[in-house]
Simulated scan of single mutants.
Amino acid sequence: MGKVQYQCSMSLDGFIAGPGGDMSWLVPYLGPDPMVDQIMERTGALLAGRRTFGGDDPYKGTEHEGEAYGGGWEGPQFVLTHDPPDAPVPGVTFVTDLETAVAEARAAAGDKNVGVLGAQIAAQCLDAGLLDEIFVGVVPVMLGDGVRLFDHPGGTRVKLERISLSEAPNSTDLLFRVTR
């Protein structure tokens, strides 16, 4: 069975999105990355929060706007939301319960990983003991404000074990195992 894996890019100062969820900061850093290619290859389904699913897209204005990983990945997507849309979205299943969303995404992924997109859904998975790994591409820019990689008011300690470290032209890629 695959892992439940938080997948994101992050500025050096710890933000995965700019103020208001802005993702345009990432555009200059998109490009070839062998580790990201491996992550996509090993991902069988995506699980996103509603804000991430409906949010800003670094591929906005291109032929790959609205496509996961800019069109580099295809497969079933699950969105955790309290307010599913009335009209169906092809390839997307809207789920209202975290445990059900993770279970359905795992079943759809088969022996591959479930890629978790979005800070809030990743934090919920972590709190519920459902998150196995964290992949972060650290990008050489500082944003100063925005959506943090991990935000837990009052603080909490999460112990991680580094699995791998690699460099790409536009990022330093880190993969961690969540230790329990």
Rank of each mutant, 00 (worst) to 15 (best):
L130R: 04
V92Y: 00
A123L: 09
L98T: 00
H152F: 10
R162G: 07
V138T: 08
D145L: 08
G137R: 04
E74A: 15
G155S: 09
Y69W: 10
I163H: 08
Y69F: 12
G146K: 02
G110S: 06
D127L: 07
I134K: 00
A123H: 05
G155R: 08
S166H: 07
S164E: 12
V141F: 01
T100P: 00
G155E: 11
I163S: 10
L149D: 00
L98F: 03
T93K: 09
D83Q: 15
D132M: 08
D111W: 02
L149I: 06
V114R: 03
Q120S: 14
I134D: 00
A128S: 14
L165N: 09
I121W: 05
A108F: 06
T96P: 07
D132R: 06
V147L: 06
D145W: 03
Q77T: 13
T93P: 00
T96R: 11
V79E: 04
G91I: 09
V138K: 03
V114Y: 05
A87S: 15
H152A: 12
V102A: 05
V95H: 02
V139M: 02
L117C: 11
N113G: 04
H82C: 14
A122W: 03
A105I: 02
P153F: 06
L165P: 01
S164P: 05
G110E: 04
F150A: 08
D145A: 12
L160W: 11
P84Q: 04
R148D: 01
F94A: 07
V79Y: 01
I163M: 13
D127E: 13
Q77F: 02
G71Y: 00
G155W: 07
K159V: 13
D97C: 14
D111G: 12
P88M: 12
E99Y: 08
V79R: 01
A105C: 08
Q120E: 14
V158F: 13
V147A: 01
V102S: 01
L149H: 02
E104N: 09
V136S: 01
G72E: 10
I163T: 14
I163R: 14
F135W: 10
D132S: 11
N113D: 15
F94W: 07
T156R: 11
E74F: 05
F150L: 11
E161T: 15
E104I: 05
K112L: 15
S166V: 04
T93G: 04
V114T: 10
L165G: 07
R148M: 00
V114E: 05
D151R: 09
R106M: 07
D97F: 05
V116L: 08
E99M: 07
A122Y: 01
P85F: 08
T81Y: 05
V114M: 07
H82Q: 14
G146S: 09
D132K: 07
P76D: 12
G72V: 06
D83N: 15
G118E: 03
H82R: 15
A119D: 02
L160I: 15
G155A: 10
R148T: 00
W73A: 13
H152N: 12
